[in-house]
């Protein structure tokens, strides 16, 4: 699995966010875009998800244009529809895709089990903690079985125990999917990433790509310097 962003140009009015921006992400690993707030991380995820259109450039998955419904996107806030129960939220992409009732039920239950949210299935989102909401959103992505999963600040405003659980789920999920998360949190990138893409701007650019784990920890000083160069 390979996702390529080529020569991307995008901005709002005179504010240029991307000008010939290129980056490549590979699947079966956890890709983390690291950068300070306002650098364009969320905009990049929205462009990849097809929510906003670039002025020019292309975004390809395995060399081809991304098909509708092949991306699961989890925004920083408002990740669940408040008028649907947890079950209803997880079921939604399958309903939209017209998946048969029994198959749908089976996939929803499996996804809820995988994220340890089965016991929450009849609750409405307002009754969930931040971490629980995020886990349900990940369950929805698992149920829809999309090859690409994009998460914007997946653990922002979540307590340490909740973050730990989400990191574990993301590591698991990234084995079979192309997962890209955006974060401003250096420690989170160091802890969970298989690959770290340090983003700077504006116009935005990837200033460094590093392997996660030991390599990233050994270069943490350099990462901090690059992070604050913005």
């Amino acid at each position: 699995m390979r996702l390529e962003v080529r020569d991307l140009t995008f901005g709002y009015d005179s504010n240029v966010i991307f000008n010939g921006f290129s980056v490549e992400f590979k699947g079966s690993r956890l890709n983390v875009i690291l950068g300070p707030n306002g650098v364009g991380k969320s905009t990049l995820l929205k462009l990849i998800a097809g929510i906003i259109r670039p002025h020019s450039g292309s975004i390809l998955f395995n060399g081809e244009s991304i098909l509708k419904g092949s991306i699961a996107y989890i925004p920083q806030d408002n990740e669940l529809l408040p008028w649907l129960t947890v079950y209803g939220n997880v079921e939604l992409p399958l309903r939209i895709a017209g998946v048969n009732g029994d198959v749908r039920r089976m996939r929803v239950l499996k996804a809820l089990e995988a994220t340890d949210t089965l016991h929450l299935s009849s609750r409405y989102p307002k009754k969930l903690s931040g971490g629980e909401r995020k886990r349900v959103a990940i369950a929805r992505a698992l149920a829809s079985n999309t090859p690409i999963l994009l998460l914007d600040e997946p653990t922002a405003n979540i307590d340490p125990a909740g973050r730990e659980i989400i990191w574990g789920i993301l590591r698991e999920v990234s084995r079979e999917r192309l997962v890209i998360t955006a974060t401003h949190d250096i420690s989170e990138a160091l802890i969970i990433a298989d690959m770290i893409y340090i983003m700077s701007g504006r116009p935005a650019s990837i200033v460094e790509v590093l392997s996660g784990g030991e390599e990233a920890w050994s270069q943490s000083r350099r990462i901090i310097k690059l992070y604050y160069r913005h």
């Binding site: 097809g50 509708k68 996107y73 829809s144």
Partner: peptide
Amino acid sequence: TPRDYEYLIETMGG
């Protein structure tokens, strides 16, 4: 109504 909700439906292919 936050636009995020509609973005979710869009990315689901809705």
